Simulated scan of single mutants.
Amino acid sequence: MSFYTSLNGMKNAQTDLGVIAHNIANAETVGFKKSRTQFADVVAGSAFSNPKLMVGIGANVESITQNFSLGPVEQTGSALDAAITGDGFFVTRSGETGETFYTRNGSFETDEGGFIQDGSGNRLQMFPTDAAGNVTSTTPQDAQVPAQNAAGSAFAGLTISSNGNISASFVDGSNEVIGKVSLASFIAPNGLRQVGSSNWQSTGISGAPKYGGPGEGLYGKLLAGSLERSNVDIGEQLVALITAQRNFQANAKAIDTATQIGQTVINLRT
């Protein structure tokens, strides 16, 4: 039995090493959130077993938990970069498939159609507003910049304020609020499914998203011209890496010891 107990221990340590390696590899990925492997002991017995003599049969991976703590904020100076200084996720939608994604990566740009999008072509979602910046609908829609204003003046630039208002400026010197950035929150963010590129999707475990504007209730304000970097602490991950490596080695040594004991029993002479 000790062979399989230690073998499971090695597999668990290998899983832990994989999670840590993934964290370290994404230490410079904007909006990335680190994960942690949680283990649970396994005990087998029956109602007739003496609880004082029960021997455990190893451990298994109970969960790989995501940590959504705030990462360091870096100032970039780009008008379309934005960091959330609290809870909430940016909402984006694929222009091709219509899939909805949630992200902490606030690095955006405009495409040839005037849509504000991330590096993967997913369009930022906003609440429509009137000219004064008052929200007119709580249903998110694609953020799109008009090529010109009502007077026929061409588009000149774009800014995002701390309350999420997206303002377009035009050649004639006028400014117009075209919408308000919509943020999403979840009752159980650890249940979000990672889909890559610092994006998540909702699941039955995370619950349905609740939408709101920056600075409203539990939603953090936006910091324009900044990005939230990965929350991975390299020093912490290197210590965890050493611990996982020692765990793997200890289980391997236990298998070696069990092999030696078995060989000794086989070689016994009467």
Score class of each variant (00 low, 15 high):
Thr100Lys: 01
Phe101Tyr: 07
Phe101Ala: 15
Tyr102Arg: 01
Tyr102Asn: 02
Tyr102Thr: 01
Tyr102Lys: 02
Thr103Trp: 04
Arg104Pro: 12
Arg104Asn: 10
Asn105Trp: 03
Gly106Val: 12
Phe108Ala: 03
Glu109Lys: 15
Thr110Lys: 09
Thr110Phe: 14
Asp111Asn: 15
Asp111Ile: 11
Glu112Arg: 15
Gly113Ala: 14
Gly114Thr: 07
Gly114Asn: 08
Phe115Ser: 14
Phe115Glu: 12
Phe115Asn: 15
Ile116Val: 15
Ile116Glu: 09
Ile116Cys: 12
Ile116Ala: 14
Gln117Gly: 07
Gln117Glu: 14
Asp118Phe: 13
Asp118Cys: 15
Gly119Glu: 15
Gly119Tyr: 07
Gly119Ile: 10
Gly121Pro: 06
Gly121Tyr: 07
Arg123Ala: 08
Arg123Gly: 06
Arg123His: 06
Leu124Met: 10
Leu124Ser: 14
Gln125Tyr: 03
Gln125Phe: 01
Gln125Met: 08
Met126Gln: 12
Phe127Arg: 02
Pro128His: 03
Pro128Met: 06
Thr129Pro: 11
Thr129Leu: 11
Thr129Ser: 14
Ala131Asp: 13
Ala131Arg: 04
Gly133Asp: 01
Asn134Phe: 10
Asn134Val: 10
Val135Trp: 00
Val135Gln: 02
Thr136Cys: 06
Ser137Trp: 00
Ser137Leu: 03
Thr138Trp: 03
Thr139Ile: 13
Thr139Met: 09
Thr139Tyr: 00
Pro140Gly: 11
Gln141Cys: 06
Gln141Thr: 15
Gln141Ala: 09
Ala143Ile: 00
Gln144Thr: 13
Val145Glu: 05
Val145Ile: 15
Pro146Trp: 01
Pro146Ile: 03
Ala147Val: 03
Ala147Cys: 02
Ala147Lys: 00
Ala147Asn: 04
Asn149Cys: 01
Ala150Thr: 07
Ala151His: 12
Ala151Val: 13
Ala151Ile: 12
Ala151Gly: 12
Gly152Asp: 11
Gly152Phe: 13
Ser153Tyr: 05
Ser153Thr: 06
Ala154Lys: 08
Ala154Ile: 04
Phe155Asn: 06
Phe155Val: 06
Ala156Asn: 11
Gly157Pro: 11
Gly157Cys: 04
Gly157Phe: 00
Thr159Cys: 02
Thr159His: 03
Ile160Leu: 02
Ser162Trp: 03
Gly164Phe: 09
Ile166Trp: 00
Ser167His: 00
Ala168Glu: 02
Ala168Gly: 05
Ala168Pro: 00
Ala168Phe: 02
Ser169Gly: 14
Val171Arg: 06
Val171Gln: 11
Asp172Gly: 13
Gly173Ile: 14
Ser174Gln: 07
Ser174Leu: 11
Ser174Tyr: 02
Ser174Cys: 06
Asn175Tyr: 02
Asn175Val: 10
